[in-house]
Amino acid sequence: MLTFTNSHLLLGELDYVEPASVDEACALLAEHAGEARLLAGGTDLLVQLKLERAEARCLIGMRRLPELRRITGEDGLVLGAAATIRSIARSALVRGRYAALQEACEAFSTLQVMVMGTVGGNVCNASPAADTVPALLAFDARAGLRGRHGERAVPLDELFVGPGRTVLHADEMLESLRLAPVSAGTGSAFLKLGRVAADIAKVSVAVRLDREGEHIRDCRVALGAVAPTPVRSGEAERALRGQAPSAALVQDAARAAADEIRPITDVRSTAAYRRHAAGVLVQDAIRRAWARAGGREIR
């Protein structure tokens, strides 16, 4: 039954704490057993609390954890979980080399949300439409998790269980996202369709191609908002890998991706549209990525 929520307010008492270390944050998570939530930018969490789709008694702020906001370029790219979408979009380490990630961050619906929202929040919120996730998948991102009992690294495509659900334990938090290094022959692109520009995706696609001469040595094709979690299309990747791109190949890959996904009909779009549009975006993204990788125009 529908409850009329009240977005004027946050209902319910809230404790707010700002731990000084990640360990302390994990301890707090454990201590409040299920009643505490990490608060990064709050652009998902506070909306969910207001619309009563989530509950919390204690919010754990991350302002005193500056190391989590850092973006570094050692051995690939490492994004602190609390790096804001805007800081990633504007980072010199990201620009060009991780074009798909930059485009994904710029595709965020509004400036204010880019300023407030973080990549960790985007990932941990586990929305199938999260914009950064296809791009992160395209760069083989590994999630660095830390809990009371230590650290572990989880490949991003194993992090999501379903809409809003991840493999994180109750006392665990995301510390960083480590993206694979890119080479001179790497090109990538991210494309998104919304109903209006300031919207979450009804379909999104990220593609990364590693070019070797006229061939695609390796590649990733990842899609958002077309399945219960952001997904990679293994079929499309298989179709492309080792091949020299041609119009026919690009079409085959797009068809493979469109066949593999499991889109639904909802208020934002229809399953049929999503399937078709996903194919179109995959083609467009491959062409862009290939051009960025220095490849010749695909005919």
Partner: peptide, 26 residues
């Protein structure tokens, strides 16, 4: 603004964004 034919609820479920008001970019 779309309604669920059975429950009579708005499909947007409280989200204004789902009425897709054009923004500056449009």
């Amino acid at each position: 603004a779309r309604w669920d034919a059975e429950s009579g609820e708005l499909l947007s479920r409280g989200f204004w964004i789902d009425s897709k008001v054009p923004a500056m970019s449009e």
